[in-house]
Amino acid sequence: MNLLTDLIFDYTLRNIALGAAVLGIVSGVLGSFAVLRRQGLLGDTLAHAALPGICVAYLLTGSKSPLVLFLGAAISGWVATLVLLRIVRETRIKEDSALGVVLSVFFGVGIMLLTFILKHNDANQAGLDKFLFGQAATVTAEDVNTMTILGVFALLVVAVLYKEFKIITFDPNFAASLGFNDRWLGVVLTSLIVVAVVIGLRTVGVVLMSAMLVGPAVAARQWTNRLEAMVLLAGFFGALSGVAGALISVSEANLPTGPMVILSLTVIVIISLLFAPQRGILWDIKRFSKA
């Protein structure tokens, strides 16, 4: 009960929980499309690719306001998307390798810039890496506001283009034959994933971001065969693990929020994989042992 009142009245906890919940909803919804389009690792690559953007944004403006850094992250994530598409489409490099190349090269350049800033600027840089490795405990109301605006924007775009996203997810060739520009729609969808990633960097960080996109979607897929239900359920699972992770990390001193969010999510995924009706693995085992 105490926790519940804290959730509403405690400034820090409220921000952490809100931030994690916004992230959970947005990444759950967008992750559903990414997972169904077999692009589960895209989020991982885009999250790493955000680093050079954050550094360049800081170098150019000298500002650490969330909007500026988010914008930098989004732009370099978007550039990474275009580079990735180009490599896959126009060279013999397969998608898997292309993801790895873009991920490590962008991140390497980012690290180089980050250490450069570290050594050449004054102590003012402290906090840049928060935007990367996630420090939910230091999320401010300003951060939450920025995240919410970005998140609502992304969800609105999904609502408007839902039909189009559905068709390019399940049958891109059919979509193309109907006259939809599937390449352009793919870029829009990926750009929205960039938005989700940018929201996530601040709360869970680069490494854990891929799970925020994949986990809720994989769990939701277990419970339904309908896209509408899957998208909603994934958003719900994402928010649930966000709030649960925030609560656990606060109730127990010194536990980092990001990892607790991911571990809560992992529990949801495991339960869904094992016990969901019809698709649950447990029922398979039962069926086999009977037969």
Binding site: G40, L41, D44, M209, G215, V218
Partner: peptide
């Protein structure tokens, strides 16, 4: 790819 994306985080 989803399996990888969920296990290592």
């Amino acid at each position: 790819e989803s399996a990888i994306g969920i296990v290592f985080p």
